[in-house]
Every structure is written in C-alpha cells, then in structure tokens.
Design a protein around this nucleic acid. Structure first.
Lengths: 210, 210, 210, 210
DNA sequence: AATGAATGAGACTTCATTCAT
DNA sequence: AATGAATGAAGTCTCATTCAT
C-alpha cells in the first residue's frame, strides 16, 4: 500500500542522485582491475554518465577511491560487528569475525575487496588515509585476540598478523565452490590455530600419512 | 683462441649489456608502483636508456613483466632450496622455507615482491603464465606440508594456504626493524601453528590475562 | 503602498543582491589572470555562489566581461572627469587626467585594469563593443591634447598615442612604493613632454630641468 | 655550386625536425590568442603533428612558451643590435633602436609580439624567467638613454619607461598603413621627446618646431 | 644495442553552460 | 535568486609502441 500522500517526492528527486551507483561501479572496477588500471571512463560509463559528471561528486579519482575504501571498511566492520553480537565465547567470536570478514571479501560486493586489494602505497597521496582506515578496522581484531585465553607468552600481535594475512590473501586463490564456503574456511583456519599440530610421538606422525 | 692482445671486447660487450640492470629497474618499479602504474619511461630512465631501447630486449611491456616474474620465482625458489638443504626434520624444513621466503620478500631486491604483489588477474594476457609460475613454486610447499607428521584428518591444503597467505601478506605491514627479523618472524609463525593455542582449562585461560 | 510594519525586505533584497560582489570578483579575476584563464568557477566561488547561479545575472561569460569592462571605463572616466573639474590650465588638466588615469590603473580596484589588460582581440565576439567603449574614453584625451597650446605641426595624434601607451603600460612594471606615487609619475611623464612643447618663452623650457 | 657528394644527408635528415616550425606556429598562436587561449591542438595542427608529438620537444606548454619568448627576445635584441651598429650619434642610436623595436613588433613574425603581449604574471610558473629575459633586453635601452646628452636631473629611468611603454603599446592600436610605417612612427616618438631634451642651444629647441 | 622523433589512443580533468527544482 | 547534478566539448599530458637511422 502506497503512503496516502507521497510527500517526500521533491526531496527524493534530489536525493536519487546516481552517486550510490557511481560508488558501486567504482568499487567494482577498482576491485577488478586495480586503482590505476580502472579508468574513469569505464566507471562512469557503467552507470550511464559522462566522465566529467564524476566531478560533481568527487574532486578527483583519488577522492573517489578514498570514498570507496571508506565504505568498504564501513561495510566489513558492520558485518563483523553483527556477527560478533551473536557470540560470547572468545574463540567463537574470533571464528565468527573471520567468517564475516571472509564473506565480505569473497561473497559480496566489491567494496571489501578494494580494501584488501588496493595497496595504500600504490596511491601515495592517499596512503596515510587508507592505512588509518584499515588500522581502524583491524583494531577490532586486536581486541578479539586480546580476549582469547591463550598460553602465557603467546605472541598475540604475530597471531593477529598471521590470521589477517591469511584471510586477506584468500581472494588470490579462492574460487567459489559449494563445498568450501567462506564460513567453513574460517572455521578451518581457526581450527588449525586452536588445535596442536605438533606431534612429539613419531608413529602418530607416520600414521597420519598412511 | 682469441688474440692475446685483444681487449676483452666481445666478452665485455656481452657483460656490459644493460639487460640485467633493465630487469632490476623493472622489478623495482613493478614492486613499488604495480604493473600498470610503472611506466616504461620510468623504468628505462633509471638505467639511462630511452623508451624505444627497451624493445631491443623485450617485445613489449608484458614480456618484460613475464621475465621479471620468472626471475622472481627463480630467485625465491633457489633461496628456499638452499635453505632446505640444511635441514632434515620436517618442521625445521618448513620453518627454514618460510624464513627464506620471508627474507626474499622483505629483505632483498624487488624480484620476489613482484611475484606476490602483481596479481596475475591484472594482466589478462599473462594471467595463465604467471599463475603457472607461481604454482610451480608453491608446489614446494605442498611437499613440505605433506612431509609434516600431522594428526589425522588435518586439512593440509588449508594449512598451506593459511601459511602462504600469512607469509605473502607480510609486505603489507612489515617494517624493517632490528628485533623482528624475517627469520624470527618465520619462527613465530610456524610456532603458532605447531603449538596448541586452545586451553581447555578455564583458569589457565583467565590467568593468562590476569 | 507597502505595509508600514513590513521589514525593508524588498529594498534589502535588492540591496543585498550579490551582483555587485559578482562584478567585483569578476574584475579581480579578469585583471589577475586574463579573460580566458579566469574561470567562472573561480569568480563565483569568491562570492560564495555556484557556477550555475552566475546565469541569473549574465547570459554568459562574455556579457560578464562586457559589464566589467563597461564599469571599468565608467569608473576611470568618472575619476578623470572629477580631476579635470579642478583645473583650467590645459597642461594642468592633462597632468591631472594622467594622474587620475594612473591612480585608477595602479591603486584602486581591478576594474580599470581590466580595460587595459584585456585585449579586445582576445574576445572576438566582443571586440567591437570593447574597442568602442575604450575609444569613448580615449576621446577625452583627444580633447585634452587638442586644447594644448602646441607648436604648429605638432603630431597631436602621435602625442596622444605616445602618452596613453606609456600610461597603459605602467601596470607591467609599476610596483607600489611610497616615493613613486601614480600622481608623481604622471607629473614626470607630462614634464618630460611638456618642457619642449610648452612655450611661453624659450629659456623657461631649458631651465625647467636644471 | 653544390658539393660534389651530398654528405650531410644523414645528419640532415635528423636535423630537419619540425621543431622550428613548431616554434613558429606556437609564436603565431600565442601572439594571436594569448597564452591560455592558444591550444596545443591548434599549434601542432598547423604543422601537421599530433598533440602528443609536441612533448618530444618540450616538457609542457610552459616550456614551449619559454622557448618562444626567449627566441622573441633574441630576435628583437639582434634586430636592435644590427640597427645600432649603423649609428654613432646618441639620439640617432635611440631612434634606430626604437625603429628596429617597432619593426620587430609590428612587421615581422610573431616572436617579438609574444614578448610584449604575454604578461609574465599570467604564467606564474614562468614569471621570473620571462621577466628576467625581458629585463635583459631592456637593459639595452638603459644604456642608450644613459648615453643621451640630457639636461641635468633628467629622470632617465622614467624617460625609458615612458618610451618603452609607448613602443610596447603600439600593437594595441597600430594598423599597417603605407604612410605610417614603424620607422616613421619611431621617428615621431623620438622627435616628441627630443625637442625639449636635445639642447645645443635654447632657441634652437623652440624653433625646431616652428 | 640504441636513438629520438613521431604516433594514436587514451588518461584525468576543467570548462562554460543548461535545467528541473 | 539560487541550487546542484549533468552535459559535451575541449583541455594538457602520458602511454606503449614504431621505425628510420
């Protein structure tokens, strides 16, 4: 049922700018080709605009990337935040965060992918901004790992870098596949860290291969 | 037999070919800016040549990348190979491989970095070639992990992807620092996988943080 | 009749029209950068408007220039007119005119500068208009020089072109400086010309500079 | 008689680049439209090149202007120098210099015109360079005027600025015309100044015009 | 092996201007 | 009177590449 009087018409007609589509298109192109190789022509064309029109919304290509990157961080943060709210056990929370992170990276729109695939160094003018955005997000994992009940002397920082590196690298090899979902991959990653791999007893090791 | 008095002209004219410098320069630029953003101008300029001269050595920019990439894989493979030859224990061998991998990535010239920082997808015409080069190298890790004495049912492929992902991601955050050497980082990574992180006993966990 | 209690809305809305500021800004930009290089963006921005809003006041950039130019001629004419009204001796009147001309050019707002710095040829569509505006003003000097008691056969037109050229060129080298005021400069220019031409008696002329 | 064997063929084919034509075309366009309004497209098109080809010869548009401006100064300096070498009397030398200056400005190619029509301020990045080039040329007039036998206390600097201003402004009004040649104009300008300043005897000066 | 002038395409960006609101 | 999104053309400049020398 439509609202009795379509009041926000005027406001909406201003609001329905193509800016969101523009961001989407930019995210897609940046993720697919990288920042440099994605041309403004290609980006705007996919939303039916002309190159010059981009500059109504962004001062230049760099700022467009900054906006996409920020949105990417926002989305992945939100997804991880939502996932965390459903768990209390520290290890479960870590696994849920990994799963949400991987889902954002592997399943969804291109925003999250931009965050991991665009190296800040490759855009000197933005490097500081992008690094700070990414650090803001990764602070979340600092907390998650701080909450883990780990053996004394565990190198928590290294653990975080190990885990995030593994997660962020997945787009380099992951191919969608019914069996190996992002969620299951996250479970496996965390499981490998949780469980002891080292087996002092020799025969156990040999039996593993047999 | 060459004339005794002859200056080593012929040999020298081979030796002082600027092709190696060209490759070095290309590696440096590709690693620093990415394939697209590194211009042929920049590359040749840093060895004192002119753009057209590049084409005496390579048919085009793609082939230049292919050569750098191949050399990168060759170097990192050789380094890892040398490191492996000094160990027999499976875990030691894995750690040595990781250390050599990280050293190549973080310490040395830019060749290895090109291998991890240039996404094959970003150069469609070369994608297959590059992927196959990288796979050839990573096969080494398949073997190393196959040799590990692991508990039954361990997801060895996932373990490999976890570890290589973590290693390959390091250039995104690593900053040279006397204390945290690549070698030590490799040790910590492997240690985190070897040892059990999960602690069934509740108090142990809480005491870790208290 | 407007309601007595009405705030002076109507009058104010006229008064606070930003048209005068717009003209000022345009004069400043045209004078500083030239007609072509001064962008509408820059002009409107300095009065807090948006580019589209300019077209509420002027049909296009050319008409904006025409308005500024006309105002420039009007101001300099008025200034010279005021100065003339204070003198009766022909040479004094010429010097006063030169002083007013130079003051408008060197001291004041940018309007007068637009008149001398924007070459009519650089705006073909307006060339005729601008030339005619400038000629209107320069006619004043035709009269001033016609009134001078000069030796027979003096090339009065050439004298005018010499003098106006020298005056109009001053912005190319003049730098504000306490000692060399526009007024003093006008005096010096006229003196250099007057000495020979002014002829109450022969020795006066030669002694004028000694 | 042609050389028996056209040896410098090879050398010439390198030397016959279109750089001179490029400079000529740039001078023409800059003089006709001003620096900003003259587009690179127009300039190169008039010598049958493509826009990108310009950058084989000049790093950017500014450097092209710098080259044209420098050549303009060189040409006008050379012309004035040649003219000076034919006279010894100070006033004759000044008049000859003015004639050569005006001829370069009004008759010939566009180079000289660029020097007077492109305001250094309009190209901030080049302002210092252009001003210094122009000052180098105008130093010539400093000397010429220093050599004039003038009444004591004559403001020689002002005299120079008056004269050069008048000369440089001529392109704003001069229209080629059989009777009023640049040479004759120079004579009239100098005459207007000379009469009073020139002083073999006091009555001669007053009688000169009668 | 190397040069340097030239190409042709395409890059990002700015411009004056329009128009529904 | 003013906005702001959009246009379409044009701007300068860079790119990988070619080729006669």
């Amino acid at each position: 049922m439509p609202p009795p009087s379509a009041l926000p018409r005027a406001r909406q007609s201003r609001a329905d700018s193509r800016l969101p589509q523009l961001l989407d298109a930019a995210a897609a192109q940046f993720a697919a080709k990288g920042y440099q190789a994605a041309s403004i022509r290609d980006i705007v064309q996919s939303v039916g605009m002309l190159p010059g029109s981009l500059y109504c919304h962004f001062a230049n290509k760099d700022e467009l990337l900054a906006a996409v990157y920020a949105e990417g961080v926002r989305r992945i943060s939100a997804a991880v935040g939502r996932a965390l709210s459903r768990h209390t056990d520290p290890w479960d929370r870590l696994e849920a965060a990994c799963a949400a992170h991987l889902e954002a990276l592997l399943d969804r729109s291109a925003y999250a992918l931009v965050v991991t695939s665009v190296t800040p160094d490759s855009v000197p003018a933005l490097a500081a901004t992008l690094v700070s955005l990414r650090d803001g997000y990764e602070a979340l994992f600092v907390d998650l790992i701080a909450d883990l009940p780990l053996p004394a002397r565990t190198a928590r920082r290294t653990l975080r870098l190990l885990l995030l590196g593994a997660l962020n690298w997945t787009p380099n090899w992951y191919r969608p596949d019914g069996r190996r979902t992002p969620r299951r991959l996250a479970r496996e990653f965390v499981q490998l860290l949780k469980a002891p791999l080292y087996q002092p007893s020799a025969h156990a090791s040999s039996s593993a291969h047999s």
